[in-house]
Design a protein around this nucleic acid. Structure first.
Length: 459
DNA sequence: CGGCATGATTCTAT
DNA sequence: ATAGAATCATGCCG
């Protein structure tokens, strides 16, 4: 554009002095220069070219002075009228080139996509905090923002680049437009330029710049598409959870075998613990429940393993609790989870219940896992026998009753244990479904007294 | 490479 | 909206 300006200036400044062409308008060749003396003409052209080439050497003042000189030239009005006349004749053909600027469908598509992807349009994010807020606003909890944080971060990066570039282009466009308009206005003193033409020139410039913008938008769209596909691929690609994560999930599953439906809070906690998403936790439990149910026998070993693990964990916890019982306020050991909801505390109590039962039945060293309600349930299902809860319940019950007393004096688990002395395994019923499947274990009535028979015992 | 394990997705029923 | 069930697709291991 510098060049263009220079040339325009050169033409405006030089052409009249050189008695030649001005402002791109064709003039009839001056008389006497009809090719008879080729050398002289070449000389003239050479002069003009030289002047054009050296125009940059002129100072601004020099150029202004020259321009002023031209404007004041006595022949200027005459030339101007000639130019007007010529323009009258040629103007029509120029008009024909005018076209309506209909909205480009491709550009519209790009715009729509950028808008849909949140690249253009109102500020939807930018920062991760804002992204999280947006996720929360759309109704999806923290899950989405975690899952998509990487995607969002990349998207916001693209967005930022896009806006920076767009701004740059707009600025450049405005600058150039202003410059051209000034030039044209300036030139309108020496040649006829209507405001409409200036307008047209501006629209041409804008079109050129919008085509550049379109390229930018296209590139941005491509970047978003690539990001998207990569993100989706990554999501589709299955990666096994870490061993630790699987362990944590299994621990929870088997310690809540009676009702393996973690609450939202529990899921979030598990997700955090396992460094996975909440939906992954949900998937895992969904898969686990169904696969466990399908083939309990296959999972028996695993169940035993985790029950033992849970018991050991609880053993440490209770041992600590008993040790500290004299001095400490009640603590809530909870199998490694930092759960604070009532439901989980109850389950923790269940674990202790198992442990203490084992301890008091003399099965030191190896745990009598069958005394765990959940484990019992597992065996029952494995054998396909009817659930003889009452018998075993009584067996456990006597021990638990003893223990309740001890515990109530030591760690303050009175409520939890008192509420569920039977260990109430809301387990698989005859139909192969978990009893009270949709009811969190926390709803296990704390009012039920010892020996009361839970409704699901009939299964 | 085959077969099983497992995480994800989809469809259906509630 | 959620769980169950079926299914897909990939990871892993012998």
């Amino acid at each position: 554009m510098d060049e263009q300006a220079r040339i325009m200036q050169a033409l405006g400044g030089v052409s009249l002095a050189g008695h030649s062409v001005q402002g791109g308008m064709a003039l009839p060749p001056p008389h006497g220069h009809d090719g008879t003396d080729g050398d002289g003409r070449k000389q003239d052209i050479g002069d003009i070219l030289h002047q054009i080439m050296t125009i940059t050497d002129q100072s601004l003042d020099e150029a202004q002075a020259k321009k002023h000189g031209l404007n004041c030239h006595r022949m200027k009005p005459a030339l101007f009228s000639v130019l007007c006349e010529i323009k009258e004749k040629t103007g029509l053909s120029i008009r024909g080139a005018q076209e309506e600027d209909s909205p480009d469908p491709q550009l519209m598509r790009l715009d729509n996509m950028l808008l849909a992807e949140g690249v253009s349009g109102p500020e939807k994010g930018g920062g991760s905090a804002a992204a999280a807020a947006a996720a929360a606003a759309t109704g999806s909890p923290t899950d989405n923002s975690i899952e998509h944080s990487d995607y969002r971060a990349k998207l916001s990066q693209i967005r930022q680049i896009y806006h920076t570039e767009l701004e740059k282009y707009e600025q450049a466009c405005n600058e150039f437009t202003t410059h051209v308009m000034n030039l044209l206005r300036e030139q309108s003193r020496t040649r006829p330029i209507s405001p409409k033409e200036i307008e047209r020139m501006v629209s041409i410039i804008h079109r050129k710049f919008s085509s550049i913008q379109m390229q930018l938008k296209q590139s941005t769209c491509e970047a978003v598409m690539i990001l998207r596909s990569r993100f989706l691929d990554a999501r589709r690609k299955r990666r096994n959870f870490s061993k630790q994560a699987t362990e944590i999930l299994n621990e929870y599953f088997y310690s809540h075998l009676s009702n393996p439906y973690p609450s939202e809070e529990a899921k979030e906690e598990l997700a955090k613990k396992c460094s996975i998403t909440v939906s992954q936790v949900s998937n895992w439990f969904g898969n686990k429940r169904i696969r466990y149910k399908k083939n309990i026998g296959k999972f028996q070993e695993e169940a035993n393993l985790y029950a033992a693990k849970t018991a050991v964990t609880a053993a440490h916890a209770v041992a600590a609790a008993v040790q500290n019982s004299q001095t400490n306020s009640p603590t809530t050991p909870n199998s490694g989870f930092q759960m604070k909801d009532e439901e989980f505390q109850l389950d923790s109590a269940e674990n202790k219940n198992t442990l203490l039962t084992n301890m008091f039945t003399g099965s030191s060293g190896s745990f009598n896992l069958l005394n765990s309600g959940d484990m019992f349930m597992s065996m029952q299902n494995l054998n396909g026998d009817s659930y003889q809860r009452a018998q075993v319940g009584a067996n456990v019950q006597s021990q638990v009753d003893t223990l309740r007393h001890v515990i109530s004096q030591t760690a303050g688990y009175n409520d939890a244990l008192g509420g569920n002395p039977m260990y109430s395994p809301h387990g698989l019923n005859g139909n192969g479904g978990w009893q009270d499947a949709t009811t969190p274990s926390s709803v296990i009535s704390p009012i039920e007294g010892p020996g009361s028979v839970h409704s699901d015992t009939s299964n």
